[in-house]
Write a protein that binds this DNA or RNA. Structure first.
Lengths: 201, 201
DNA sequence: CGCAGTTTTTATTCTGGATGAGAAACCGAG
DNA sequence: CTCGGTTTCTCATCCAGAATAAAAACTGCG
């Protein structure tokens, strides 16, 4: 509990391994994540990983946990920095931007977590269910605020609408190519669609 | 060309294998698709698969091809059946419904194809690129029609908006649970979001 | 030097794709 | 109904690649 955070060389190596795991996980999926590939990316011999983790699954597990945590905290922070009294629909737009930024440029972990969770073995998914729920709760809260402001189309089921919106965001990781379109362009399009899509006609 | 379609027992077994491959592919991803699992689902011994396909990749390849083809044709058919002269935005709504129905209830193949393509090895993805483009072209056409009708928010980039929308649809396969919500509910929410989201403010 | 912490080397085991020899099922001709 | 050939599939096994274990070697600090 005391000094786990100290940035020793060992801690940096360990971090490199987790980062590499997220990197590979994101591109290859759960089953396709080979320790040899992770090792290569992390600039380490494959068995060295076992000094830090007792199994492949444990490593992947941590990469996913980091990802979920990062998504949660980056979005939460972005919301915290918003000026007080902002209409809920604007806060939602902030969350949309933060989620996309995290997914697309800030964190392989978050992207890997979001996109890989469904493929994980049941036991592992179970372990992250709570974190997932917590993150979802943030969004649900935002949607509820929007509804209370009267800015949500009453014909929309809030839960379903939320999942549809999150899907749009999560899927960007599959197609967005930094070389071809700007991140801001994607964010802008997503925000417009969400704003107008949710709005009461 | 002549009688490849005849429904012999052999043809049925073969189909079971492809179906099983799609089933596993959808849940486990490309790397996670084991022939032993496919065999189990198809009620066949694993080596029997090699009677029909010369390699694992060839089997997966076919499952994906079937999926892309099915998505394309189901959506195209739905559009063809729409009354002539329907506003483009309504035709788009029809496509949304057809895509969701295909993905969520009609075809594991389509869902597997749509969700797995990004994970496939380059060579294989290459082989399906054309089919993918063709399917995308249908959507692009619809969006262009909507724009020509003046129903598309001019601030939206049509290409980006389309990908965001398709993402919302494709991701439904990750979360929608037939046991908990009705398919119609999802379709309705998606249609509303698309209609209002794309509309010129 | 000497030792704790870290990493590499070497060896072992496990998993899962693939193959090949032939058994069983099927089928049409006599 | 039975025989020969063809189609379909099974069984045993192989093999490569990957995870893991064990042991050896390195590294920097006291």
């Amino acid at each position: 509990m005391t000094e786990t955070v100290r940035d020793t060389k060992s801690a940096r190596t360990r971090r490199r391994v987790v980062d590499a795991a997220a990197h590979v996980l994101l591109r290859r999926g759960y089953a396709g994540t080979r320790l040899s590939d992770v090792a290569e990316v992390a600039q380490v011999q494959a068995p060295a990983i076992y000094y830090y983790f007792s199994s492949r699954d444990e490593l992947i597990d941590e990469a996913v946990a980091v990802g979920l945590d990062r998504a949660q905290s980056l979005v939460t922070e972005a919301l915290a920095q918003a000026p007080a009294g902002l209409p809920a629909i604007d806060r939602l737009a902030i969350a949309v931007a933060a989620h996309l930024r995290t997914l697309l440029t800030h964190s392989d972990h978050a992207a890997a977590a979001v996109r890989t969770v469904p493929q994980l073995p049941e036991a592992m998914r179970e372990r992250h269910r709570q974190a997932q729920r917590d993150y979802l709760a943030v969004w649900r809260g935002l949607v509820a605020e929007v509804r209370d402001d009267g800015d949500l189309d009453p014909a929309l089921d809030p839960g379903t609408a939320l999942m549809v919106v999150l899907g749009a965001l999560n899927w960007t990781a599959e197609w967005w190519d930094p070389a071809r379109g700007s991140l801001e362009g994607v964010i802008d399009a997503a925000q417009r669609l969400v704003r107008d899509g949710l709005a009461a006609s």
